[in-house]
Amino acid sequence: MIETPEPDLRQQAQRAGSLSMTGSVATRALGVVAIAAVGVMALLALWISPPDAVQGDSVRLMYVHVPSIWVAYGGFVLTAFASARVLWRTRSGAGGTYGVIADRQARRWDRVAGAAAELGVLFTALTLVTGSLWGKVTWGTYWQWDARLTTTVLLFVTYLGYLALRRLPAESRARARRSAVMALIAVVNLPIVHYSVDWWRTLHQEASLNLEPGGDRNITGEMYWTLLYSWATFTVVALWIGIHRYRVLRLEELAEEASLEELLAQRRDEQAAGR
């Protein structure tokens, strides 16, 4: 807790003001839109859209399950993209005046990567939970060693690890680079994991019947539109949360710097008192 911040810190915080308040007019508007969209989605998904001929009401889980994983994938791709930008901005040779600007931009991209990965993990978790509930009803078990399930759970654990790596205290530049490298490895590894697991299943058993929500079954009409609408809703919600999270990450960085300043000041005081 800092009761009276140092003058330079205060300035710094104010300069960051436009970035650091987690609510601005635009995000408040976005939040209203997101919540309204969720309300409409609940109506569409739970009430207006018809039950499936084969799956009955359990098909309604699809409207959460499928958009979640789409948004999660989007988040992970964004993490990889932002991480590539971080590495590009902090590459050796980016020194001097340019270095300062590059550093600031690298930090921004680093925050984007962190926020996007966190959302990706959240929505992957939603996919896994709704998927296993659906599986309990349809297959009779919460879990099947299906290729897609295995891949998704590995994806989830990989990015949990990424978030764990990000949390570790370190010098911010080194941390940004390190997590950027890991994000790129993770995203490169994804297709490998996906295909190897695919082959594992197909070489050993008949292709599992594709009853998974959002599998290859053709869906049409109201269900199709509901799914599309849910996807748009999830995207807006993710965007809204993501912007807030980005700003909170900015605040966390400021707070870290502030506590460092405070420690330094304390140390100076101690030394002065000792003399």
Binding site: P5, G17, G23, L122, L126, I241, V248, L251
Partner: peptide, 29 residues
């Protein structure tokens, strides 16, 4: 499924907003 999804998302939103408020207050913003 819907309740869990809504609860998890709401919890996360709540955590983000609260953390933002606390940090902002601590920093004097």
């Amino acid at each position: 499924g819907y309740v869990l999804a809504a609860a998890a998302t709401a919890a996360y939103v709540g955590w983000v907003i609260r953390r933002g408020r606390t940090l902002g207050r601590d920093l004097g913003i």
